[in-house]
Design a protein around this nucleic acid. Sequence first.
RNA 1: GCCUUCGUAGCUCAGUGGUAGAGCGUUGCCUUGGUAAGGCAGAGGUCACGAGUUCAAAUCUCGCCGGGGGCUCCA
Length: 606
Amino acid sequence: MKILALHSDFIEIEPKKKAIKQAEDIKKEKIIVKDCLVVLSASQKADEGKEKAVAKRLVNEIKDISEKVGTKNVVLYPYVHLVSDPSNPKSAKEILDLAAKDLKKNYKVTSAPFGWYKAFNLKCKGHPLSELSREFGGESKVEKVERKRPPAVYKVMAASGKITDAKKFKFSKHPLLESFYNYETGNRKTKDLAPPHLKIMHMHDLCDNEPASEFGNLRWYPAGTFIKRQLENYISQKVHAFGGLEVETPIMYSLDDPIISKFLEAFSERQFKVLSGKKKLFLRYAACFGQFMIKKDMPLSYKNLPLKMYELSKYAFRREQRGEAVGLKRACAFTMPDMHTVCKDLKHAKEEFIKQHEFEMDVAKGYGVEYSLVYRMTNEFFQNSKDWLKKMVKIWKKPMLLEILDYSDQYWIVKNNYVYMDNLGRPIETQTVQIDVQNAQRYGIEYIDKTGKQKTPVILHMSPGGIERVLAGILENTVDKKNPVFPLWLSPTQVRICPVSDKFIKDAEKISNQLEKERIRVDIDDRVESIGKKISGAQKEWIPAVIVIGEKEKKAKKLPLRFRESGKIKDMSLAEIAKWVKKECSGKPFRPLPLPNMLSKRPIFS
RNA sequence: GCCUUCGUAGCUCAGUGGUAGAGCGUUGCCUUGGUAAGGCAGAGGUCACGAGUUCAAAUCUCGCCGGGGGCUCCA
């Protein structure tokens, strides 16, 4: 559709006679509208069948222009002569009618008669914005790139390295892998319920959807922010120790960039786009772009390889469709740790892959959640890499699923996914390592080898798990437990002290100060409530350990810790408590209590 | 984007055409306690939003926005 918008002092329209058969029946009278935006429009062949989308675009354009020129009077004037390939009249009329209906909510709309020869008299204001032309189609429905893919073949590699057709594999001892396999192959037994982590998210005041944003954009409250930061710091700490060089790159990139734009064409529906004046930018969906752009500008030597570059992307953005963004499983803005390793060649990449696979498993230990492993690869890679896969399974020590693809329209030739399952039998894919054989060439990344020749490297992608998804996995994992707790290093409160009455608050504070010095997160239930209620509250909050303090404890040398998981009470000295927390949290980052330590002062967020 | 379902107090929800409800939480007072919920009183609502039908709409119809599920998708 092409439009010409004229901000006018007035327009005077006089219908003369019908130009086409389909012309609408009207009274032949003069129409005069003063101080208005006259929108001459013509729809094109390409708009046929997309009337709704085109009408929407038309409405948006008109809103945009009318706001700029400051008028609420709109005159829709069908003007087929603007284009050389007009659509059929029915389609054009439909677009105009839809647009008029929509615009009438906010504007005074006059529709010039459709299909008539009209005389008109118009005075255009002549300021810089008074004459604007625009051209657009129903972009919201861009044709999808049809990918005709042959179905994948699934096999299972047992811990011994033996490969079996997945259909024949006995999954009975591996229910997690089985339910994932079932989901992958379409035997989906899902329940018509929201994933349970949504409730937990809310119960613990972690986070919520932000109604003033797009769906899938979350706001995080202190307890949620605490857990998120802990996970972020844990991963970053691990990656640093593994040799990742941390960088920070922009979150938005120009759509006009010759390298990047090519990469994006097929996925334009999934991007958030941003306007900077006339320049169009998009928000990144991963940290690849920024890192590849750095690497392409670096004078890389074989001596630098493998070069591991790491970024914790806050945020990465994907414009998920309605019905796809669910709680933490698929947010539209998410935190993505992303490492890209430049390797000399495929052989080198395969060696490095093994190390990164071990690394991923080590990181996953900190999450404390059981998961499955799948390797997805091209058939060619599979045929050449059976021994390599055996090395993987030896580290993994359990059967892993193999998905073998008979096509290669993606940038990777092999990747693994670490898969958590939610309680409704749906997978949450988190960590991954991938061998990328396309992007080095696409971005022009090169290194100089021993002989002084320029070579194109192979790139390894590695993510130790999108933070939100990892959290979803951890939360889902608590659901079937009798007395669920967060891993101690992720518990906002580790120990709660409950004085039996307000006489003992001072004593509680003393103990709390001592424990705080040992870097333990302690809070005090100083509310005027019965001790039973304080215990009950601590249980509801999943506080891992509770200490009741009264006359008895004041005198005793040890403190009675009630552990949530077991429900048992154990007498422990301050030193023993500190030792326990240190042991449970070894190798994990520390953050102080995210909320006031006195419960009476603590705000409720949702 | 399509299909489906839901939207009532801070939260969880009841309320099928006739005065807006409960539990939890919150506020105040009483209770000063012994390992899962002490008592009493109060505050808190544009029934998502807009239009329509009706003497009368939380309730029926249409539209719109938002949440959940399914499809597609997840680079």
